[in-house]
């Protein structure tokens, strides 16, 4: 996932072939900035979007940070819930993006799958007042939802138990599934979650998210205890 300057330039060249409205605006040792218009031409749910959007795209170099998009000309309404005050767009959970590109990152695919879909959802929402594909919950809730989908498991408690097992134990198909079904892992969630045990890159992503969720829960618990004591 980490971009060297050379890799970044190679991918930017590919991107500019499909998004010719963009250009390199600034470049330093730590990041490359692209600005200009991206053209979005897609459809879903009977809605068509064909539009140019002015953007600033920042590609961090030699860092684990993901590229991001800034709505530098305020095309997204200020009250839209998925735009930060500084103009940064909340495209998806980092988990979704990192897992999608866990083996190799593609700027072209990232724009296509995450940035274009973001603008599509935005325009659909502005027109119909509904999100065409839904929206993620804020904060930790959105991360848990991402794993609910990845693990094909609706129960967030079971998802958390699976994440814990992935972080703390090696894969053993004959052991009981951490979800509590009393079935062997290989006959239960095993086939879906096995890759998160086995692939070191995926495992690292789960570890980071598990730690975040764990810390969040501990913090909530401590706040509750503090409030109880204060009573």
């Amino acid at each position: 996932m980490i971009f060297t300057k050379e890799m970044a330039h190679q991918q930017i060249a590919e991107l500019l072939e499909v998004q010719s409205g963009l250009h390199i605006e600034a470049e330093s040792e730590t990041q490359i900035e692209l600005t200009g218009d991206i053209f979005i031409n897609c459809k879903s749910k009977g809605f068509f979007l064909s539009e140019n959007y002015p953007v600033q795209i920042v590609i961090p170099l030699n860092s684990n940070e993901l590229p991001y998009v800034i709505d530098n000309e305020n095309r997204i309404a200020k009250d839209y819930p998925h735009r930060y005050d500084n103009g940064k767009l909340c495209l998806e959970t980092e988990t979704s993006i990192r897992i999608r590109f866990f083996d190799s990152f593609s700027l072209v695919e990232w724009i296509r799958e995450f940035v274009e879909t973001y603008y599509f959802s935005y325009e659909f929402f502005q027109r119909y007042g509904e999100f065409p594909f839904g929206e993620r919950g804020h904060g930790v809730q959105g991360i848990v939802e991402t794993y609910q989908e990845l693990f094909h498991e609706k129960d967030p408690i079971k998802v958390f138990a699976l994440m814990k097992a992935i972080c703390e134990h090696p894969y053993r198909g004959h052991s009981l599934c951490p979800c509590g079904s009393n079935q062997k892992l290989r006959l239960c969630h095993g086939p879906i979650v096995m890759k998160y045990y086995m692939d070191n890159r995926l495992n690292k992503i789960v570890q980071a998210d598990y730690k975040n969720i764990y810390d969040y829960l501990v913090n909530c618990y401590e706040q509750l205890r503090y409030r109880e004591k204060a009573k």
């Binding site: 031409n41 998925h82 998806e92 979704s96 879909t117 999100f131």
Partner: peptide
């Protein structure tokens, strides 16, 4: 236009998020 609009598949489409 020259290019036909790309179909976004609902089931796998990205969903907007906010970490804050």
């Amino acid at each position: 236009g020259e290019a036909t609009p790309r179909q976004i598949t609902s089931q796998t489409a990205a969903r907007p998020y906010s970490a804050q």
